[in-house]
Lab assay of single mutants.
Amino acid sequence: WVPTKREEKYGVAFYNYDARGADELSLQIGDTVHILETYEGWYRGYTLRKKSKKGIFPASYIHLKE
């Protein structure tokens, strides 16, 4: 896992994603996520609506905010 280059990196989910394991994070369309790390097509972070739950999710489900 590699920390993100920018201190504040955010994105928005444009697909729903159902977590398949305890380390994964479920997403709903429109969720804003804070991205902490990246690795081979995956991000690690949390949604702003539930900051206490961190997990991994596919990068392809996220539109990055500039």
Rank of each mutant, 00 (worst) to 15 (best):
P3T: 07
R44I: 06
E37K: 02
H63Q: 13
R6W: 10
E8F: 12
D23G: 12
A13C: 12
G41H: 07
K54V: 15
L64I: 12
N16R: 12
R44Q: 05
Y61D: 02
V2R: 13
V2N: 11
G45Y: 08
T32S: 07
Y17R: 00
H34F: 14
Y43N: 00
S60L: 08
I29N: 03
E37H: 07
A22G: 10
D18H: 12
K50N: 15
Y39H: 09
D18K: 13
G11A: 02
T4S: 14
K5T: 13
S26D: 09
T47N: 15
G30M: 02
G41P: 00
R6F: 11
P3N: 05
I29L: 06
K51Q: 10
K54L: 14
V2P: 08
P3W: 05
K50I: 09
R6I: 10
G30C: 09
G41S: 06
H63D: 08
A19W: 01
G30R: 03
Q28A: 09
L36V: 07
H34E: 05
E24A: 03
Y46N: 06
R6D: 13
G11T: 03
K65H: 13
Q28L: 10
E24N: 02
K65Y: 15
N16I: 06
E7T: 12
R6M: 11
D18R: 11
G55R: 01
G21L: 06
Y39K: 15
K9C: 15
Y10D: 04
L27C: 06
G55P: 00
K53H: 10
N16D: 10
A59V: 08
A59L: 04
I62H: 00
Y10M: 06
G30H: 03
E24R: 02
Y10L: 07
I29V: 12
S26G: 04
T47F: 05
I62V: 08
G41A: 06
S60C: 14
Q28P: 00
Y17F: 09
S60Q: 13
G21S: 14
G41M: 05
E24M: 04
E40H: 09
I35G: 01
E66S: 14
E7R: 11
T32W: 15
E7H: 14
R49T: 13
G41D: 08
Y61F: 09
R20T: 09
D31E: 08
H63I: 14
K53R: 11
G30F: 03
L27I: 06
G21D: 09
Y46M: 04
S52Y: 12
W1P: 08
I29E: 07
K5D: 14
W1G: 09
S52R: 08
T38K: 15
L48K: 05
A13P: 02
Y43H: 03
G55M: 03
G41Y: 05
E24G: 03
G41C: 07
R6G: 13
